[in-house]
Design a protein around this nucleic acid. Structure first.
Lengths: 222, 222, 222, 222
DNA sequence: GATGAATGAGAGTTCATTCAT
DNA sequence: GATGAATGAACTCTCATTCAT
């Protein structure tokens, strides 16, 4: 009922005068229906991927008729795109340099904030979203682009800024991270690939892997 | 879906009875036909993924009739499995500790061998195979397992052995890499994900990224 | 499908009890709504034909909700029938023999009245109605029948009566038109078929064609 | 099996060497199948029109599977177009001026040739084809154009030539038919409209109507 | 072995019609 | 009366798989 993406239905509250009662189904009902479709679709897409998900199954799971889905999304692809985009929006990882306390070391800041986020990645379905974007990326390049633009690029910018700060303060003694900010988050990608695609039976601990990466990058004596 | 090696056609007998003319096509012709199907299928699968590849297109590309494919592979899935498996076999990355020269440092050995392999990853279609295993992994868990068993696990074992050696020789001053051998190859996964799925327009240099990782792991002063 | 006049809504009572305020919308409002639906439907049907017209589009064009249409017409077919019938009523062509002036020749009377009507056929949408009746006739035989009964047959009767009069007065020297009254209006049908279906780019002049037909029938020396 | 239109299948006879036997289904079988689809489609389209004909019904009537139709025609529209075009080709009406015997009057020639054709119009399904082209013309303007180009226009040219000849020989005493060649065939259109759309119960005799038209045009004393 | 016509089970999508509000 | 969300049957089209030749 919250955060309905701005694609199909009318905004819920028209204005503040509660007396206005339109005929027909209420906007709340509409929003609920839409959300149940989105939820069902997300679950199905995550479980089976785009090609193996059928509209009929989504409808059944959402408890609505097949045709109704087409009132909310013009096509299966639009449904997929909308669902994934909505999730991408939620996937932001927060490492804003501005939140670093005065005098706080970059490494400490990263441990305090990012490590927590990363341990949470697998709790929430963020890794699954990433997996889906990856798996369907070839067929939906636009989605991959959105993911890059909204999630990866901003994150990389922030990492770069933090690396630069660490370099200037002497916390880092070389430019490697400034030039290759991807280095910092490489263990996350590796973890997602291994845990979500290759070895579900023996998952690596992404958080621990990331902490080790922090260790080596910041040359911590073990 | 697991034991798909003998899926369709008996292993081609390397002519032990060279003079005998059997009825029908010669084993050589058979092998050639099979290979042209596999080649065509690989190309199609890489281009379009499993779901969007049709048997008809594969047949056309291979220059054979649709029905013939079913003489070699019982089903589309079997074709896919066979094709990918064959590629996985080629995907071995060679870092055999035994080949380390006496007295050669582990780091030097890695730079001498692995870095070269990694720069080659993108030249050959290995990254594309990895991408496909990743993308279709949800639908073909058996393939992912094979990939892990035949490619990842052996590689990890070797990394672990090298890490142990480096630890014992004092080249490494902590157990991080021994406990998290994935750390070494994380940049490769990150690179594949970024280059193949998320940001084809601005690829990272996987080899360079990997070298930086060697730098930080072996605490090289820049 | 035949008796569709009372198909949906009772004939609007021309207020015999003007002071009484009934609940709900006033009859005038009702009539207005109904008319806007009919107008929209006519326009859509003329543009796209029966099968390609959707109730939703009609509703949108009429500025009413989809469901409301079903308060006035039980089904799409009833709507179509009602709309076309209403137009058929307007399609009468006036050639009443009674209006012939005393002593006026039949030919002169036809030129004075019918030719004018025919030049008007294409100005009004009568030809388009005819076209629609023709195009949908196979699917709506009842409509074609109504068209025949209300438009064609009466017209033919009048033509026959005029032909008989002309024969008796010696204006015509044979019974051809009496026996084949369709001969008189054949150019109109030909004109509609050619202009509306076959060659919109090079329309024939129906009025001129009809005048030529009068010429040859009444053996006018050119 | 004859005259397969050149749209989908390979030409039947590759060359004269009868020894060539390809594998798989024979071209004759293919042509037969194609023809049975075309026949079934024509019958269905004539009975129900384009929109009310389903591929499934056509397939059932042709005795083939639904999907097979799509091997021969890319889409329902293509099937319709092909079927109708093939019939249009057969719809030529022959009034070639060159076949007029030396010294034969135009009127006599027309009675000798065209009247016969016209009486045959309703025996064959030509009138039904015309009806279908008319009924679906709005949705398939290309077909109407083909019909005009291949049937109407050539016919009109011939009529014009004959009218000119008759005018010059003094057989006609005015230019009406030269200027309005449609006049000659108007009764045919009228007849088709009346018999096929408006009044199936009381059909007019198109041949007789056309003969009367010849009478009046050539000013025959009754 | 080899061909490709033939099959038929779905899948996505549309739309007349219903009904809770 | 009026709304438009909801239903579900029906339709077009696809494609893995089979099979007569």
């Amino acid at each position: 009922m919250q955060k309905s993406s701005p694609s199909a239905v009318a905004p819920i509250s028209r204005n503040d005068t509660p007396a206005i009662r339109r005929r027909g189904a209420s906007p709340e009902k509409t929003a609920t229906t839409r959300q149940s479709i989105v939820d069902a679709a997300l679950a199905e897409f995550l479980e089976k991927g785009f090609a193996n998900t059928t509209i009929e199954t989504v409808a059944k799971r959402a408890g609505v008729a097949k045709g109704l889905i087409y009132r909310y999304f013009v096509a299966k692809e639009a449904l997929f795109t909308a669902v994934v985009q909505q999730e991408i929006v939620n996937a932001h990882i927060d490492v804003d340099d501005a939140k670093r306390k005065p005098g706080e070391k970059v490494e400490d800041f990263l441990r305090r904030t990012l490590v927590v986020s990363i341990y949470a990645i697998e709790k929430k379905s963020r890794a699954d979203i990433a997996r889906m974007v990856i798996a369907e990326g070839a067929r939906f390049p636009a989605l991959a682009e959105i993911y890059r633009r909204d999630v990866i690029d901003p994150l990389m910018q922030k990492v770069k800024r933090l690396a630069t700060a660490a370099r200037q303060s002497g916390e880092l003694t070389d430019d490697r991270l400034v030039k290759n900010p991807h280095l910092l988050l490489a263990p996350i990608w590796a973890g997602i690939v291994i845990n979500k695609f290759l070895d579900r039976a023996h998952p690596v601990n992404i958080g621990e892997l990331f902490e080790s990466q922090l260790d080596v990058i910041f040359a911590k004596a073990a």
